[in-house]
Amino acid sequence: MKMLEIKNLHASVGDKEILRGINLTINAGEVHAIMGPNGAGKSTLSNVLAGRDGYTITQGEVLYKGENLLELAAEERAQRGVFLAFQYPVEIPGVSNIYLLKAALNAVRKYQGLDELDAIDFLSLVRSKLDLVKMDEQFLHRGVNEGFSGGEKKRNEILQMALLEPSLAILDETDSGLDIDALKTVSEGVNGLRSADRSIVMITHYQRLLDYIEPDFVHVLSDGKIVKTGDKELAKELEKTGYSWVQQGQAE
């Protein structure tokens, strides 16, 4: 089954075109890595897919499970199973983590035509997910990401993902700012969520994340386009040679 089809996607911020014709198909169960130098358009791609305001789509289309994704509001995408793990998770004092998790889960369940979980079922579900990312229960009662370390914030993102069980998860620079232990924990969490009916897109600058979460495909994004596609060996090559050859290759 095709999870995501991006066809000739062009997107601008103001007058500046950032995405300049992206083509990418992701099937259910696949893990794709999108790598590229700073400024290539990696974060723009993840924001456009998640539905953040401020981007103008000038050409192309995106189909998610065959449906026109770009017509949907951010919350409609989330309810249908699109999940973005943020590069810089926001801190929201005053909204407790558990309240957020419950509101998010119930929004998704409501779309699926399911009843809200009662407090007891909800708590036992959340507890089982906490184990996956090795988080202490006390984090549930703190404000969303309030005073969390970088690693705790990223684990909290994966906790939300584990609870919402998305069909398409986009991990935006999930490895950034993580020490090696936190990277392992987060990666184990993500690996635990790999399944035949879930696709994962990892957006990353560095190869090291791919040592822990092994992708099926690696794409190189440069100057708003995918310029090369390969398997995990491509990532290793990039690690050795850097991105300059990609940019040169493009110029030729």
């Binding site: 953040r52 305001d53 995408r77 929201i92 509101a103 919402l164």
Partner: peptide, 11 residues
């Protein structure tokens, strides 16, 4: 903050 909450399914 608003986008984050919407990206988690809240209208």
């Amino acid at each position: 903050h608003l986008f984050f909450l919407r990206s988690r399914g809240l209208d």
